[in-house]
Computed example of a mutant assay.
Amino acid sequence: MTYLGEGWDTTAVLVAGHWVERRPRRPAVEPQLRRETVVMPWLAPRLPLPVPIPVIASGNPLVVRHELVPGDEVTTPTATQGRQLGEFLRALHAAPVAEAGRRGVGPAALPVQRFREEVLPHAPGGEGLLAALGGLPADTLVHGDIGPEHVLGRDGVLTGVIDFGDLHVGDAAVDLAWALHSAPPEFADAVASAYGVTDELRERALVWHRLGPWHEVLHGNDVGDRRMAEVGLAGVLRRLRDGVSPR
């Protein structure tokens, strides 16, 4: 058994070099893990890249297990990988929302009130960003946390996408935030071309990109990690100050 690490919601270990076992870090995460065991067997065949298909290995305490998705975190994404990600997201976003709903996937409420209370007092100019959230659509099945740590690659190609714990019905642009506004230009352009990104979709993705560090502040507060909250706030201020994509 090899310790793989922990995210905000789960810890993961590798068993026998082949199986990934994940455990919730707190009771509130258990329904999320159980939902993955229901929705991922339905969703995986629709997607052009490997994804985890977990099953329940233990009910008490809860442990879910899936085959290891090969690859490493994408640190220097290429145009080829951008095209692959664009095609992956296009397929994911085409999945029927009604069928996902029957498997327990619904909208995810944003903690806007907590943003106002815990972040906004320290983030002059952030009110406009929060106001923009009210006009965003919520009509697409989205991964909800697409970033380099969840997009895996090897030998210049993508090998899989992991961590579907935040899967929900929301704005398609949330899955494009990192790719369009934090990744290298050649990767971002390839994603945009393969997906068919419009100017309006790019602007919505920028809203989500700017909102990302706000969640880090709240999580730092929740777990008592002052350093995480401070780093998150620095990101909030930086992205508000820049106001546009770093591209």
Rank of each mutant, 00 (worst) to 15 (best):
P184A: 08
W214A: 03
L237S: 12
L218S: 03
V97Q: 03
F88G: 12
P184T: 07
E200C: 02
L233H: 09
V174M: 06
R241W: 10
A234G: 11
A194C: 07
R116L: 00
G156L: 07
V15E: 13
G17Q: 04
L176D: 10
V207S: 00
V174I: 14
R116V: 01
V51P: 14
G220A: 09
L68T: 10
I53G: 09
L130G: 12
V119T: 05
E216T: 15
M1T: 14
V97H: 05
W178C: 07
L206G: 02
G220H: 09
G134W: 06
L14T: 11
D145E: 08
R114G: 02
T80R: 11
F115G: 06
N60D: 14
R26L: 05
G71K: 09
F88C: 11
W19G: 00
L180M: 10
V157W: 04
V69A: 01
R227P: 06
R103F: 00
G243N: 00
A205M: 01
V157C: 06
M228K: 12
P61R: 03
P54Q: 08
I53S: 11
L158K: 07
W19R: 04
G106W: 07
E118F: 08
G101I: 05
A109I: 03
P48N: 01
P246V: 07
G128I: 12
S193A: 15
L167D: 14
Q113H: 12
L130T: 07
V231K: 13
P96L: 02
G156A: 09
V105F: 06
L206P: 04
D175C: 02
V142G: 00
V223F: 00
L158I: 04
H209T: 00
E186P: 15
F187M: 11
R247N: 15
V197Q: 04
R26V: 09
A229W: 00
G153E: 12
P70V: 02
P48E: 00
H143W: 02
I53A: 08
R46H: 04
E230V: 12
A12P: 14
T140V: 14
A12R: 09
A28P: 08
V20A: 15
D166W: 01
G212M: 04
V217Q: 05
Q32K: 14
P148R: 10
R202L: 06
A95C: 11
D155K: 05
E117R: 12
T198Q: 06
D145A: 05
L85P: 15
W42Y: 07
E6H: 12
G156H: 02
A183W: 03
V20Y: 13
W19I: 07
V151A: 14
F115D: 08
P213K: 10
T2Q: 04
L47W: 00
N221M: 03
A190H: 05
N221F: 00
V51C: 09
T76D: 15
Q113L: 09
E67H: 08
L176A: 07
E186C: 11
R227A: 12
R247F: 09
I56H: 08
L62V: 03
E127Q: 12
F164G: 08
G126P: 14
G82A: 02
V64K: 10
